[in-house]
Design a binder for these strands. Structure first.
Length: 491
RNA sequence: GCGGGAAUAGCUCAGCUGGUAGAGCGUCACCUUGCCAAGGUGAAUGUCGCGGGUUCGAAUCCCGUUUCCCGCUCCA
C-alpha cells in the first residue's frame, strides 16, 4: 500500500471528490434523502468521461476481426449462478469476536485449527468421535460446521484475544442481490442481479459463435453493470455495490491458452498506458497459486496506484474450461466446439480480460489531477488545477471565448462554436476575464481553448491555447476543425 | 459488521458555557474588459444530514439513525 502520509492521501481524495461534485463529474446517489451507501451518480461531465473510456475500450477490443460484441441481460436464469459457483462461493459465513471485535470467516477459522485441536473439540461434542483417525476427523470437521456451527464455535478460542465463547452467531453473506420475477415472492421466482457480466458471455458462447461464423480463437466483448452486495463499500468509486465492467472473454484451444494469456496481458496493459497512465503508476499483481479462485489456472491483476494504495482496475485470468464445462453440466446442453480442420471436439479454454469501467474512471481521474504553479497577469505565481485527461477521454474537447463582449467578437465566436459543435463537444464561455475562463476549462480538462480577439476581425485567425503548455497558436478559423480533429482523435 | 472522526450556502469553513445563521470563494445579472482565476454594483441560495427528546427557547445538550472519511474486517 501507499507509503504517503494518510493525511496527504485523504486530502487528495477530499479535493478530488469535492471537484467531482462541484464541476459535475460525480454526485452521491439519492443525496437529498441522505444518500445511499456505496452508490454514486455520474453528472454531465462524468457521464461524458465514462462514455469516452468505454468507447475507447470498445473500439480497441471489438475493432478486431476476431472479437464480437454482446449486450446480455442483467437478469439471468438462477441456475447460471449455481453453475458459476456464485450461489455457493459468494456465501461466506462470518463471525465476530464480541471481546476483541476481530472478524473471521468461519471456514478459515475452523480449517486453521490443528488436527489435535479439532479432535479435542469433536470429543467435547460427542465422546464417540474419539476413536476416529485423523483423516476421518478432518472429513467430519469440514462438514460439521455446516450442520451446526454454533456448538463448535462455542468451543473455540479467538485467535486474536484468546477468549472462548465470545463469537457472535455465524452470519451468511451472499454477495448477490436477490429479487423476484413476477408477482409472487417465493423461492421459485428468485433471480439475481448479475455479480459479473462474464456469465452472460459464457452462456451465449455458441449463439455468438454460430451467428458470427467465428472460428477459434475468438473473443466476445461486453460492457455492462454488475452488482455485489458488499459488506463494506470504500474509497469513493473503488468499492461500490453497483459498478460497471468492461469484459472480454477469449475462447481458445486448450494448449494455446498460455500464449494467449500473455498476449492479452500485454494488450491490456498497453491500453492503459496509451490513454495516459504512466508505467510507474501501474503494476502487475499475480494471484498466488495457492490462492487462485476455483476457476482459475493463472491470474494477474493490473493495479493502479491510487492515493489510498495500489488497487485492482483489471484482471486477466486464465479461466480454463471451467465455465463452459459447468454450464454444459448444469444445463445439459453441449458447450463444446468442433474444429473442422482437425476434426477435434473439445471444450475451449477462456482467457478473461475483466476491467472495471468505474474503477478505470476513477483511476483516470486520479491520474489526470494536477496542481501546478502558473503565472498570473501580475507576474506572481499561483496554483492552477488541471485535469490532464488524454484528449480522447476529455469530456469537453474545446472551449470558445470572445476576448471581450463587443466589436462583433461574440457573433464570430458563436459562429465558430456552432461549426465545431457538429464535430466535437464544445463549451462556450463569455463571462469574466479570459484568464479565469482558461482556468475553468483547465479544471475540467478541456484540451483546447479558442479565443476570438481583435485580430480575428481583420484576418479570420483565432488563438488556440493548449491546456498543458498554456502556449497559444494562431490558426485560420476555417482550419480549426481539421486542426483539432488531428490533435484529439488521430495518433 | 466493529472502533474513531466528521456532517452548517454549490465549495472551504466560522458560529464560545443554549437566545430565531455568518464569512471567503463560487454562481447569476448589469457595468468594465484587450490573453492566463481574486475591477465595480447588485442578487439568489440554508427546515444547520434526518428523526425524536430535554427546554420558555436547540446548529449548540441527550438518544437514535443515515451518509462520508480513517483503521480493523472483508473483497468467490
Amino acid at each position: 500500500m501507499s507509503k504517503q502520509s494518510p493525511s496527504t492521501d485523504t486530502q487528495f481524495m477530499d479535493k478530488l471528490v469535492s471537484l467531482c461534485k462541484r464541476r459535475g463529474f460525480v454526485f452521491q446517489s439519492s443525496e437529498i434523502y441522505g444518500g445511499l451507501n456505496g452508490a454514486w451518480d455520474y453528472g454531465p461531465l462524468g457521464v461524458e468521461l465514462l462514455r469516452n473510456i468505454k468507447e475507447a475500450w470498445w473500439k480497441d477490443m471489438t475493432h478486431r476481426q476476431n472479437i464480437e460484441g454482446l449486450d446480455a441481460a442483467i437478469l439471468m436464469h438462477p441456475r447460471v449462478w449455481e453453475a458459476s459457483g456464485h450461489v455457493e462461493n459468494f456465501t461466506d459465513p462470518m463471525v465476530d469476536c464480541k471481546q476483541c471485535k476481530a472478524r473471521y470467516r468461519v471456514d478459515e477459522l475452523l480449517n486453521g485449527l490443528s488436527i489435535k485441536k479439532q479432535k479435542e473439540i469433536l470429543r467435547q461434542i460427542d465422546e464417540s468421535y474419539a476413536r476416529l483417525n485423523d483423516v476421518e476427523i478432518a472429513a467430519l470437521f469440514s462438514q460439521l460446521p455446516e450442520a451446526d456451527p454454533r456448538s463448535i464455535l462455542k468451543l473455540i478460542n479467538c485467535p486474536n484475544c484468546g477468549n472462548k465463547g465470545t463469537f457472535t452467531e455465524a452470519r451468511k453473506f451472499n454477495l448477490m442481490f436477490k429479487t423476484f420475477v413476477g408477482p409472487v415472492e417465493d423461492s421459485s421466482a428468485v433471480v439475481y442481479l448479475r455479480p459479473e457480466t462474464a456469465q452472460g458471455i459464457f452462456v451465449n458462447f455458441l449463439n455468438v459463435q454460430g451467428a458470427s461464423r467465428q472460428k477459434l480463437p475468438f473473443g466476445i466483448a461486453q460492457i455492462g453493470k454488475a452488482f455485489r452486495n458488499e459488506i463494506n463499500t470504500k474509497n469513493f468509486l473503488f468499492r461500490t455495490r453497483e459498478f460497471e465492467q468492461m469484459e472480454m472473454q477469449f475462447f481458445v484451444k486448450p494448449g494455446t491458452d498460455d500464449q494467449w494469456f500473455e498476449y492479452w496481458r500485454e494488450q491490456r496493459m498497453n491500453w492503459f498506458v496509451r490513454f495516459g497512465m504512466p508505467k510507474e503508476k501501474l503494476q502487475w499483481h499475480q494471484h498466488e497459486p495457492g490462492k487462485l479462485a476455483h476457476y482459475a489456472k493463472n491470474a494477474y491483476d493490473i493495479e493502479f496506484k491510487f492515493p489510498f494504495g495500489w488497487g485492482e482496475i483489471e484482471g486477466i485470468h486464465n479461466r480454463t474450461d471451467f465455465d463452459l464445462s459447468r454450464h454444459e453440466q448444469y444445463s445439459g446442453k453441449g458447450m463444446k466446439y468442433f474444429d473442422e480442420e482437425t476434426k477435434e471436439k473439445f471444450t475451449p479454454y477462456i482467457i478473461e480480460t475483466s476491467a472495471g469501467a468505474s474503477r478505470s474512471f476513477m483511476a483516470f481521474l486520479v491520474n489526470a489531477y494536477a496542481e501546478e504553479e502558473a503565472p498570473t497577469a501580475e507576474g506572481t505565481m499561483e496554483t492552477r488545477v488541471v485535469m490532464k485527461f488524454h484528449p480522447k477521454l476529455a469530456p469537453i474537447k474545446v472551449a470558445v471565448f470572445p476576448l471581450v463582449n463587443r466589436d462583433g467578437m461574440p457573433e464570430i465566436a458563436h459562429k465558430i462554436e456552432e461549426d465545431l459543435r457538429t464535430h466535437l463537444p464544445v463549451f462556450y464561455d463569455d463571462s469574466g476575464a479570459v484568464g479565469r475562463r482558461y482556468r475553468r476549462q483547465d479544471e475540467i480538462g478541456t484540451p483546447y481553448c479558442i479565443t476570438i480577439d481583435s485580430q480575428t476581425l481583420g484576418d479570420q485567425t483565432v488563438t488556440v491555447r493548449d491546456r498543458d503548455t498554456m502556449v497559444q497558436e494562431r490558426i485560420a478559423s476555417d482550419r480549426l476543425v481539421s486542426y483539432l480533429m488531428d490533435r484529439i482523435y488521430k495518433f
